Simulated scan of single mutants.
Amino acid sequence: MPTHVNTLRPHDDAPNTEAAFVRLADTPSGPERDALRQELIRAWLPMSERLASRFKNRGETFEDLCQVAALGLVKAVDRYDPQRGSAFVSFAVPTITGEVKRHFRDHMWTLHVPRRVQDQRNRVRTAQRELLQTISGRTPTEGEIARRAGLTVAETKSGMEALGCYSTLSLDAQPSGGDHGVALAEVIGAPDHALDVVIDREAVRPRLRKLPERERRILYMRFFRDMTQSSIAKDLGISQMHVSRLISNLCDRLRREIIQDAV
């Protein structure tokens, strides 16, 4: 089958396809139209790959980026109307880049971030990069970034917070500057259940000090050393039943004293 698409140069990613698009628009559905459509897509693939290369090093493989860009190219070829007078490249570039950006927005963000905040993030990142080339010896302030990005300070702060939402670290990863072999999960704080009993501990502390040595020792062995009643009985040379009664009576007495003081 003869080639319907004429290019300016074999490696030019903006081929001369005006006539081919006119023929495509005038050709009815069928094998001939499908073949011409495929040739147009192949002719513009180098340009779509060039556009995809702009998004490298953002967490997606270049091969996947090229596939997404190619999908945008297919949409551009199918939607382009040569009768409107604009060149195909001016229609295809925003269509392809929009498809790649949509891919990042819908599939690459680890945390869900509103589209408005994503835009603020991109503008903040661009402003930071430009300011770092003109300011030496320090990092740009939020006010400087806001003026450069055309945002308010509040919007700039929102965009800066979103800079860390694009990807997350595994809990098995090692924290920056941490000891070798220490996972992130091992240094993340957790709820301290001992905080729930701080008030109770402080309320009972002075009353424990007033107890006789023997009674204080029994409570210490039971509740601080976690000894069984039988072990305590053996240590003191008394019966386990006696230890049980002593602990029960001591706890009841301390509880009554604390309640009375609270009233």
Rank of each mutant, 00 (worst) to 15 (best):
4 H>L: 06
10 P>M: 10
10 P>Q: 10
12 D>W: 10
12 D>R: 07
13 D>P: 10
21 F>H: 02
24 L>I: 02
25 A>C: 01
28 P>S: 12
30 G>C: 01
33 R>G: 03
39 E>Q: 01
40 L>N: 11
42 R>C: 15
49 E>G: 10
51 L>C: 13
58 R>Y: 10
58 R>I: 10
59 G>S: 09
65 L>R: 14
68 V>M: 05
70 A>V: 06
77 V>H: 08
79 R>S: 14
84 R>W: 10
85 G>I: 00
86 S>L: 14
87 A>T: 09
89 V>R: 08
94 P>T: 04
106 D>K: 04
115 R>C: 07
131 L>V: 06
131 L>N: 04
148 R>Q: 01
151 L>S: 07
152 T>Y: 09
157 K>E: 03
159 G>Y: 01
160 M>G: 11
161 E>Y: 04
171 L>I: 13
173 A>W: 09
175 P>S: 05
180 H>V: 09
181 G>I: 00
185 A>S: 06
194 A>I: 00
195 L>W: 08
203 A>C: 13
203 A>M: 13
207 R>H: 11
211 L>P: 01
215 E>A: 11
218 I>Y: 03
221 M>F: 11
221 M>E: 09
223 F>Q: 03
229 Q>M: 05
230 S>A: 03
232 I>S: 11
236 L>F: 05
237 G>P: 03
238 I>Q: 02
239 S>M: 02
239 S>G: 02
240 Q>G: 01
245 R>P: 05
253 R>W: 11
257 E>A: 12
259 I>H: 10
